[in-house]
Write a protein that binds this DNA or RNA. Sequence first.
RNA 1: GGGAGAUUAGCUCAGUUGGUAGAGCAACUCGUUUACACCGAGAAGGUCACAGGUUCGAGUCCUGUAUCUCCCACCA
Length: 715
Amino acid sequence: MKQLPEQLTKPYNPQSVETELYKTWEESGYFNPDNLPGERTESFTIVLPPPNVTGTLHTGSAIMLAIQDSIIRFKRMRGYKALWIPGTDHAAIATQSKVEKEIYKKEGKNRHDLGREEMLKRINEFALESQNTILSQMRSIGASLDWSRLAFTLDEKRNLAVRTMFKKMYDDGLIYRGSRIVNWDPKGQTTISDDEIVSEERKAILYTFKYSNDFPIAISTTRPETKVGDTAVAVHPEDERYKDFIGNEYDLEFAGCPIHIKVIADTAVEKDFGTGALGVTPAHSITDWEMADRHSLPRPQVINEYAKMVGLKNEELNGKRVTDAREYIVNWLKENNLLTNEEEITQNVPTAERTGGVIEPLPKLQWFIAVNKSFNHFGNEITLKKLMAAAVSSKAINILPDRFEKVYFHWTENLRDWCISRQIWYGHRIPVWYKEGKIYCDINSPKEEGWEQDEDTLDTWFSSGLWTFSTLGWPDQTKDLKTYHPTDLLETGHDILFFWIARMILFSTYALNEVPFKQVYLHGLVRDAKGRKMSKSLDNILDPRDLSEKYGTDALRMSLLVGNGPGNDLKLGEDKIKAYKLFANKIWNAARFVLERTQDFEKEVNLIEEDQSVYETWREIHKDITSDVENYRLHLATEKIYDYFWKVFCDEIIETRKTRILDDIDKASAQTLLLKLLREQLIVVHPFMPFITEELWKYVKKDGEGLLMITNWNG
RNA sequence: GGGAGAUUAGCUCAGUUGGUAGAGCAACUCGUUUACACCGAGAAGGUCACAGGUUCGAGUCCUGUAUCUCCCACCA
């Protein structure tokens, strides 16, 4: 046995070893599976959900890194070609608005002052500069990512993948351009998809009135200003009160604007709400748009992109903001004695997730992905929606916890065509060109002069949806793609099940005819010790960088893993992290002690019966732990490790062997046992607490053995 | 309106296929002779939300109820 080194005479100090150890790992080249030693036939791949390029590490990213790193390290030690691909996301709207705000603050200029080219240059500079922050923070958590394969959702390779996918879907008739009602965010000046909407509960006044004295039916609405765009009044077909009016048409004057109203019957109308009659505004309500489809109604637009009134006969109204127009019309109703009731109600107002702007539904010419359209998919007629559902119902993809499968099916069933065009500059530009009414879609721009490219960019989820295979080289048929796709595990928070996971399934099954991943593991959100969401306004945010500095990265990682089952939210208080700092301390001291008592150790001997039985018990637990990790039960594996190391190994085994070594009673067997157990436990603890275990491994490894990170995890 | 989850010790939570209720933290007692800016030993603490049911046996499976949380949805 080696002399006890200087380092081991002191308490464990994470700061002094972590940076150096990470450097050793990175320089070893083992993060790249191509460099791993030994015969490795099976691959195991995880793609990292790319964090926003301009972001910083938060507890959510820390939990994701801790889980994925533990699993990839385990697989690496189990003999797999273990690949974990890093990357960052350009996060279109989020990044652009962040840079816009900053420029406006500093220079008082908006994006139109700068122009598209200059603005993009500035955003790119900012993004790349910002990227290093998040990458180095990922390193500090110990993440064993293969940096040689680093990708960015907006780099050239990914752009080629995006253009290729767009062209393929366009040719298959799955991407189309259409004038339809979309969710318009007047604040962000762009369309957004259904999933980017969050409804906010707000108080509103429900007004009940008649358009004019010439009209027989009273209607109720919270948005009187939209009524100048009405083309029908809808009632329930079985509503006795209105039966006789169905089919009638009226020419009326409403707030100085001529309107033509047809009374229609539609089952979408709720008899018991308001007056049971609904003013139909096809251009500014999604429900009404669909009703207009069913009844062939005209759809005049009366609100524009800036949420102002347009196109009206009454010039006083034109140009007014919707809120002002509402006041104007309510006053007009009162003056003309048409308003019969005002009632305060709470309603869900749709707002844009990113900007908080109130969504204004508008008819616009946009690009869509047709999810309900049948097409020929490798010889079968199928729709994208069915393809998405089949990937999960066939068990080709398994979701953990499985209750999310139900949520997934429900979502795919109710999916509508996905609006993919965005009126912002930062993102993948739509590969479509126009000239004299003609449309040209291809991977590259047309050679002739005079073609103008579509101004819009693609929804950011279009590019992240290709992530599992665009990172592996697609559309080229690369060796990586053959070796590592489908990936094995997709681990992320359950909040992006629809946004991201569903879209990856869509693109991968569509283009490659294979699932993007076999297993989905959804972790919960991190909350504070009282169970509240972490937010700036509550000032209860725990910064993983501070925690890792204060308690050591290993302690932080353990606190994020123990007791954190899939799908459940995790309450994290500093006490918990502190407890695992003590655990790290315990490991350190136990190792010191074992090494001290075995300094005169020469070679392994056969264990006496008593020691052998202790060892066999450990092997049983070892087997359990292995199976827990293999089945993604990290919360159980880590707990067992903690419990065995502390309660069994330290409190019982070391305590009882201590005296035997001093008194020289079957000393060699006791020493052999302690060393064996210490070594094997370091191996098992390593995926979860990589730093302290790698550091200690230096003192217990045998001649010829390398880094702990590539040491074989048996059994 | 629809769906999902949670409810176990004072607090935070485990409990994998049904087989005598577990851990950490806190509180209590004792001890610390050199692995431990701390550690060890011991004791205490639970009608497993409630009510039914299935079973030889239920924290675990089924039905219902209550409370809390989350997601989805076009009652204007």
